[in-house]
């Protein structure tokens, strides 16, 4: 009894840990709100068409994305309303695709370069003119493996 009292007197009491989970959850929510996924910075609106003959892309590191669509409302005062090309997180012109592909090739082991796939995420309402320009550029840089991104059709 006397021993117990002595300890309590000499050392500080145990740290209250009951509120620790709350702090952790606060951190968690902070990160959840603040984290911006690189892929999700969408400047152009893309609603991919529906299709049935789908293949799924497996190696994410071997896939690069080209978005084609009309700029979303927020960016329309900068980029206008006609369909544009988005590479990474910026609006680019067709001739920039060359650098975009070359840059991706540098990040991939040499023997896997032929397996690089370009995923075209194109809005269904875009006309083929801009899509053809992109395809032509891809053919010129010998990036032949292309995936027309589409959603599975639910009948």
């Amino acid at each position: 009894m006397s021993r117990f009292r002595k300890k309590r007197g000499k050392s500080s009491p145990a740290i209250q840990t009951a509120s620790l989970p709350d702090i952790i959850f606060m951190l968690l929510f902070f990160f959840m709100v603040v984290t911006v996924l690189r892929d999700a910075e969408i400047i152009v609106q893309v609603t991919t068409p529906e299709a049935t003959e789908l293949t799924s892309l497996e190696r994410k590191s071997l896939v690069n994305y080209i978005y084609i669509g009309r700029p979303v409302q927020r960016y329309q005062h900068i980029y206008g309303t006609s369909p544009r090309i988005q590479l990474g997180d910026a609006i680019r012109e067709p001739h920039d695709i060359r650098f975009f592909i070359e840059e991706h090739r540098l990040r991939v082991p040499e023997n896997q370069i032929p397996a690089i796939t370009t995923s075209l995420r194109v809005d269904g309402q875009v006309t083929m003119g801009i899509v053809t320009d992109v395809k032509t550029e891809l053919r010129k840089v010998e990036q032949y493996k292309v995936n027309y991104s589409a959603r599975p059709r639910i009948d």
Binding site: A51, E53, L54, T55, L120, K135, Q143, K145, V146
Partner: peptide, 8 residues
Amino acid sequence: DRGILVRL
């Protein structure tokens, strides 16, 4: 990501 895989 799913889609129609083609070879240009």
